[in-house]
């Protein structure tokens, strides 16, 4: 990575080694797969969306940062 910014590197990368590795879970809802940071037993915050349908990325309910609740279900 080449860093090209007016911000000094020392400021941008301060605390870089202390960044805690978040535990992310991959969750599928219909055709949409997302990386979710769990905030509770069955709820979490969307970190990244993985979908082959570009329109999903325009859905505000699926935008990163949204809280979602999910329950496991059995599909045949």
């Amino acid at each position: 990575m080449i860093f090209y910014s007016i911000m000094p590197q020392e400021i941008v990368f301060a605390n870089f080694d202390q960044m805690n590795n978040r535990e992310l879970r991959e969750i599928s809802m219909g055709a949409v797969t997302m990386l979710v940071e769990p905030t509770g037993p069955f709820e979490g915050q969307i970190v990244r969306l993985i979908s082959p349908n570009p329109q999903d990325y325009l859905n505000p309910q699926l935008s990163p940062g949204q809280k979602i609740s999910f329950h496991p279900s059995v599909t045949e």
Binding site: I11, V12, F13, A14, N15, F16, Q18, M19, R48, L49, S51, P54, Q55, D56, Y57, L58, P64
Partner: peptide, 23 residues
């Protein structure tokens, strides 16, 4: 980047641009 930075993540923007082009 560490959390003190306010960032725009390119992996969020690129599919949005694809969607904007296609919609």
């Amino acid at each position: 980047l560490p959390p003190q930075n306010k960032t725009t993540k390119y992996e969020h923007l690129i599919p949005q641009l694809v969607a904007a082009e296609q919609n």
